[in-house]
């Protein structure tokens, strides 16, 4: 059961959009940006408000790769595995991140909720391959060692705030 603050916040988000089916994806985007994931309990609430069935809301939220029902870490690291990054060795970068953080293709988020590591099809930074994105910031020309360095910096950043 979510506490009432979730519903207050959701009401605030819902009020920005017309109560129609077409608002569903923008609303889920905002929920995800607020909480770093989509609390599944909110879907029936949103569905009722915009006049669609719960199943429909769930089917849409589960269809799109970007929406996650699992809480994500403070830093979401998206390693690009597009063609250009792939041929310029993006996998060793991914492997280094996973091994340093004890993650795998099954476990994406560290227990301290600091890091989530996932892959993405393309970040559009192909000329600086291999690239990765931390939240909304792109890091170019990565190597496994630079990935280790990056984790260190992010940890320092987290300990300051």
């Amino acid at each position: 059961m979510l506490d009432s603050s979730f519903y207050t916040k959701t009401d605030e988000i819902l009020s920005k959009y017309p109560a129609q089916e077409r608002s569903l994806i923008p609303i889920i985007h905002e929920i995800q940006e607020t909480y770093n994931y989509v609390p599944i309990e909110l879907l029936p609430y949103i569905a009722k408000h915009i006049g669609i069935t719960e199943t429909k809301a769930y089917s849409v939220a589960s269809f799109y790769e970007r929406f996650s029902f699992e809480p994500k870490g403070k830093f979401i690291i998206r390693v690009c595995d597009g063609t250009a990054c792939h041929v310029r060795q993006s996998l060793p970068v991914l492997e280094r991140l996973r091994s340093e953080l004890g993650l795998s293709d099954k476990k994406h988020t560290t227990d301290d909720m600091l890091f989530t590591v996932e892959t993405v099809s393309c970040l559009g930074a192909c000329s600086l391959a291999p690239a990765l994105m931390v939240n909304e910031h792109v890091h170019p020309a990565m190597t496994p060692d630079k990935a280790t360095e990056l984790l260190k910096e992010l940890r320092e950043e987290a300990s300051k705030s």
Partner: peptide, 21 residues
């Protein structure tokens, strides 16, 4: 409208479906 990480939405009818929610 922002996509949500589905490659197939580049296809015309999938894209319009996605805008429709």
């Amino acid at each position: 409208n922002r996509g949500a990480g589905a490659f197939v939405c580049g296809e015309g009818s999938a894209l319009t479906a996605s805008i429709e929610g």
